[in-house]
Design a binder for these strands. Structure first.
Lengths: 335, 335
DNA sequence: CCTGATTTCTACAACGTTGTAACGGGTGTT
DNA sequence: AACACCCGTTACAACGTTGTAGAAATCAGG
C-alpha cells in the first residue's frame, strides 16, 4: 500500500528522476509535466521515504536535544523553544532524556545511533572534557556550564553575575542572614559552584561574612530536595532571613517547608529562585527569580548548530552568553 | 573519518556481510573471526549507519510521541514514562509538539516524514475521525478521549468515573455549592465534556441541583486560565464552597486566585484537580486530585503499539482503560 | 580417506532516493 | 544555415546496509 517514486513515475508516464525533481521543487520541470506528476502523487498518496533520502543525502533533517530530565519544568520550557527554533530550519527535534548519567550522555553524544541525527544540543551534567574529545564528527552545541574551555560550541548565561545580582537584591531588602540552597560538591555541580560563587561575591561586596552553616547542599534540584534542605536549615537553628535557592523547583520546595514551619514569606524569610519557570508565577507567594532568556538560549543554540552544519564545520568553537534579568515577585519583592 | 562496513571488512580481512553478522550478533561466526572483526570495529570506531539499515529493513526503531504541549507538566511526566517503556522495546522516542492544532496533529499522524517512524503514540485534541480514516498504514495508539469508536488502538482512563469520584469526595466534605472549572464547548473539549458529565452525575447522586453559574469555562487548561475562571466565579457572586478543576494546572491557578481574594483553602473553599502532577504535591496548600496511573498508561500504549508492529497488524482496534485513584491532600483533605 | 551433514563465510542484489552526465529539441545569435 | 546555448528530461550509479542463495571449510561417522 506504500508507493515509491517508481510507482508515481509509471502512473505519470515520466522518469523516476522527474518525479523526484517535482517532489523537491526543482525548477526545470515543465508546468504540465509538473501538474501530471503532482496529480499522480496525490492519487497514490505518495510520501517520500526519508530513510532512503537520508541515506542518499547523508543528512537526516533530525537534530537531537538531550536533557537530563524531561519533567523538569525548566527543560520542558527550553525544549519547547528549541523545537520552535529548529522548525525554522526545517529540523525535527528528537528529544532525549539522559537522566544526567554520564553513560547516557555519552550515548546521546555518540549519536543516538550514528548517522541518525545531523547534530546535537546537549545539556550536560556528567559529561567530561575527555568524553567530548572522543567524539569525532557529530556537530554539537552544549548548554549550560562549560565542560571545558573550548571543547565545543556553547551557550550559557552568566551564572556568577546572575547569582550575585539576586543575592544583592536580598541584601538590598535589608537581609543579612542569607542562606543558599542547592550547593553540590560533585563534578556534576558546575552550575552549583558558579551560583555559589556569585552568592559569595555578593555577600563579600556587602561586607557580610560568609557562613558555611547557611549553605545547604541538595543532591538533586527537585522540590523535595528544596523542602528537605530548608527544613534542615530551620532545625539547625541558623535562623536565615532570606534564602537564595539555586533553581526554582528548589525554591518551591523551600516555600513549602517554610509554610509548614509557620514562617511567612517574605516577611520572615525572603525566597528567591533561578530559572523563571511557569510555576513560580502562580505559586503562593509568587517567586522572585533569575529569568534567563530561554527563547534566546534556544535560538542561539540552534543557530550555532546551523552554522556548524553548513559553513564552518571546523571553525573554532564559539561561546555565546544569553541575557538574563531579575523577575521580582512576592517572595522577595522590589522593595 | 566515518567508516563503513566495507572499511572494517578490509581491515579484518573478511567479507562485508561477515562484519554485518558480527555487528548484529549473528550466531554462526567463528570465535576468532568474531574477535578479529570486533577489533577492527573498535580501531575504526565503526558505527552502523542507521539510515541505511532502516532503508534495508523497512523499520527505523523510532516511534513518535505527539502531545499538544511539552511544557504542560502532565505531558512531560507522561513523556518520561513513555520513553522508559519504549526503551524496553529498544525504541527511541521522537517527541513532537502538536500545539493541539489539527494541522500539526494530522502531520504528526501522517508520519513526521513517512517511513521515519515505526509507530505513533498520539494524544489528540483536534483530530477527528475523518482525519484518522485517511491515514493508511502507520500503526498508531491514541491517548485520552476517544476520537471515534474503534478508529484506532486507544488507552484512556475512566474520566466520567474519576470526575464523579472526586466530586463525590467534595460532597462528602459537606460542600454543596461545588463549582467546576474547565468546561469547553469546542470539539477539542472531549475530556472536558466527560469530566463535566462525571461532575453532574455526582451532583445528581447527591441530590444537588446542577447550577449553570457554577460551571466556568476555560479556553485552555493553564494556570492563568484557572486563575481567571476562579476570579470570574468569585466576582459573579455565586459563592462556591468547593471547586473541581478539570486539571491540576487550572487548580493551581484557582488556588492563586483564591489566595488573592483572601479566601482560605480548604476552610472557605475546597479545591481539587486532575492529573496528579508533581507541582500539586508541593503547592500551598497541597492539591487533592485524581491520579491517573501515568506509568501504566505509557506502558499500555507502548505495548499496544508493539503488538500492532509485530503480530496483529490488522487486528481490530483495542481499547484499554488504565486505573486511577484519588490523591487526597490539603486542598480537600480526607475528612 | 571418502561421504554427507553442518558450520562458516561470501557474492550479489535490493531497499528508495538523488547527483551526475548526457541527450534531444527548441531558441536565439551570428 | 550553422552554431552555441539552455531547458526539460532521462539513464545510471551510488549512498550503507542486510536477506538470499550458495560456495567453501569443517566435522562426524564409517
Amino acid at each position: 500500500m506504500r508507493h515509491r517514486l517508481k510507482d508515481v513515475a509509471e502512473r505519470a508516464g515520466v522518469s523516476v528522476k522527474t518525479v523526484s525533481n517535482v517532489v523537491n521543487g526543482y525548477q526545470h520541470v515543465r508546468a504540465d509535466t509538473r501538474a501530471r506528476v503532482e496529480e499522480a502523487i496525490a492519487e497514490l498518496h505518495y510520501r517520500p521515504n526519508l530513510s532512503a533520502r537520508n541515506l542518499r543525502k547523508g543528512r537526516t533533517g533530525l537534530i537531537a536535544l538531550a536533557v537530563p530530565e524531561l519533567d523538569t519544568p525548566y527543560f520542558a520550557e527550553l525544549a519547547r523553544h528549541v523545537v520552535a527554533a529548529a522548525a525554522e530550519h526545517d529540523w525535527t527535534v528528537l528529544i532525549d532524556q539522559t537522566s544526567g548519567g554520564s553513560e547516557q550522555e555519552r550515548k546521546a553524544a555518540g549519536g543516538i545511533g550514528e548517522h541518525m541525527i545531523d547534530g546535537l544540543i546537549l545539556s550536560p551534567l556528567a559529561l567530561t572534557a575527555d568524553d567530548l574529545a572522543n567524539l569525532d564528527g557529530l556537530p554539537m552545541v552544549l548548554l549550560g556550564e562549560r565542560v571545558d574551555r573550548g571543547a565545543a560550541d556553547h551557550v550559557m548565561i552568566d551564572n556568577v553575575a546572575a547569582a550575585r545580582e539576586i543575592t544583592t537584591h536580598l541584601v538590598g531588602l535589608g537581609r543579612r542572614r542569607i542562606a543558599a540552597i542547592g550547593s553540590q560538591r560533585t563534578p556534576e555541580g558546575a552550575s552549583a559552584r558558579l551560583r555559589l560563587a556569585g552568592y559569595a561575591a555578593a555577600l563579600a561586596e556587602a561586607g557580610i561574612a560568609y557562613d558555611d552553616r547557611l549553605v545547604a547542599p541538595a543532591p538533586a534540584w527537585h522540590r523535595a530536595d528544596g523542602a528537605a534542605a530548608m527544613r534542615h536549615l530551620l532545625t539547625a537553628g541558623v535562623r536565615p532571613d532570606a534564602v537564595f535557592c539555586f533553581n526554582d523547583t528548589l525554591a518551591l520546595g523551600a516555600l513549602r517547608a517554610l509554610h509548614e514551619a509557620g514562617l511567612r514569606v517574605p516577611e520572615d524569610v525572603a525566597v528567591t529562585g533561578f530559572d523563571d519557570i511557569e510555576d513560580g508565577r502562580f505559586s503562593i507567594p509568587t517567586l522572585s527569580t533569575v529569568a534567563p532568556d530561554k527563547e534566546r538560549i534556544a535560538r542561539l543554540a540552534v543557530e550555532l548548530l546551523a552554522g556548524r552544519l553548513t559553513t564552518d564545520r571546523d571553525a573554532p568553537p564559539r561561546e555565546l552568553v544569553a541575557p538574563h534579568r531579575l523577575a521580582l515577585r512576592e517572595s522577595a519583592p522590589l522593595a
